[in-house]
C-alpha cells in the first residue's frame, strides 16, 4: 500500500467514523477525532466507555470494524502493529508486563535496539555500544537515572510506570498513547508522574487515557470525552470542566453514587 504523506495539512492523528464491534456489541462506535502534531490530548470517560478499545484499535492490537485511521496523513487502518510502531507510534499498557528479570538498563536497551543484527547479537554488551548510551538517556528522560542497574522486579509501582514511559520513548516516537499512566499510583507518586509527562519533548504528540482528572487536565491541551463507545464532548480542559452533559455522565457517574 503506497503511503501518501501530505505534511502541510496533515494532523498527527485523524480518525473518522471509527468503530469496533464484539459480536453484536459496539464497544466503540462512530468516533471521529483529530489531533494536531505536538498536541496533548486526554481521553476521558467512565469505565466501559470504550477508551482502551479505542487505543487498541489505534495501535493495531485490534482491527477497526468501521472507519479510517490516518497518522501523519497516511491511512494506516489496515497497517499491522509492528509497522505502525516503525512509523513512530508507541503505547504504554495499563497492566504493565515488564521484563522482571532484567535491569532497567537492559530493558531500555531492548526497547532501543529491538535486538542488534548479525553477529553482534551473540556478543556481550559493551558500555560503549550506541544503544546503551541511548538507553541511558531514556532513563534520564523518565527519571530513572539512579536505577539503571536495578532489577525491574525490585522497582516500586511508580518507577514501573516511569519505565513504561521510558520504553515508549525509545527511538524518537512521533506519537505516544498512554493508557492510564497514573493507575495504581499513590497520591505522593502522582505529582511526579504529572511532571514527567509535562517534561516530555514538545514535538511528541500525546494521547492519554486517564482516570485522575487532576493529571489529565493539568497535562493536556484538549479533552475528548467518551461515553458508551461514542464521543460525547470535546474541548479545552476548562470547557469540559463546565460542560453539563459531561458532568451528568462522567462526574455524576464517578462521584454521585
Amino acid at each position: 500500500m503506497p503511503i501518501n504523506h501530505d505534511h502541510k495539512t496533515a494532523n498527527a492523528l485523524e480518525i473518522q467514523g471509527v468503530g469496533r464491534r464484539f459480536g453484536g456489541f459496539w464497544a466503540v462506535k462512530d468516533v471521529s477525532l483529530s489531533v494536531r502534531p505536538g498536541e496533548r490530548r486526554a481521553v476521558l470517560g467512565p469505565n466501559g466507555a470504550g477508551k482502551t478499545t479505542l487505543f487498541n484499535v489505534l495501535t493495531g492490537d485490534l482491527a477497526a470494524s468501521a472507519g479510517t485511521i490516518r497518522m501523519d496523513g497516511a491511512d494506516v487502518t489496515q497497517t499491522p502493529m509492528h509497522k505502525r510502531i516503525k512509523g513512530g507510534l508507541r503505547r504504554t499498557y495499563q497492566h504493565a508486563h515488564l521484563f522482571d528479570g532484567l535491569t532497567v538498563r537492559e530493558t531500555l536497551f531492548l526497547a532501543v535496539s529491538s535486538v542488534a543484527g548479525g553477529w553482534q547479537r551473540f556478543m556481550p554488551l559493551k558500555p560503549s555500544d550506541g544503544a546503551i548510551g541511548k538507553a541511558e538517556s531514556l532513563a534520564q528522560m523518565s527519571g530513572l537515572c539512579s536505577d539503571l542497574g536495578r532489577e525491574v522486579a525490585n522497582l516500586s509501582h511508580g518507577q514501573r510506570r516511569q519505565l513504561e514511559i521510558g520504553m515508549a520513548l525509545a527511538e524518537n516516537p512521533k506519537m505516544l498513547l498512554l493508557d492510564e499512566p497514573a493507575a495504581g499510583l499513590s497520591p505522593s507518586e502522582r505529582p511526579r508522574l504529572a511532571e514527567l509527562l509535562l517534561s516530555l519533548p514538545k514535538d511528541i504528540t500525546i494521547v492519554l487515557i486517564e482516570h485522575d482528572m487532576d493529571i489529565a487536565l493539568r497535562t493536556s491541551d484538549s479533552v475528548s470525552v467518551l461515553h458508551n463507545g461514542r464521543l460525547l464532548a470535546e474541548g479545552s480542559p476548562e470547557n469540559i470542566m463546565s460542560n453539563e452533559a459531561v458532568h451528568d455522565v462522567y462526574m455524576g457517574g464517578a462521584h454521585g453514587h
Binding site: G101, V115, M123, L125
Partner: peptide
Amino acid sequence: SPLGLTIQAVRDAPKR
C-alpha cells in the same frame, strides 16, 4: 548479549 537479554525478556513477558 542482546539475544540473551531478549530470551530472558521472552521468559518474563512474551507479549511485551
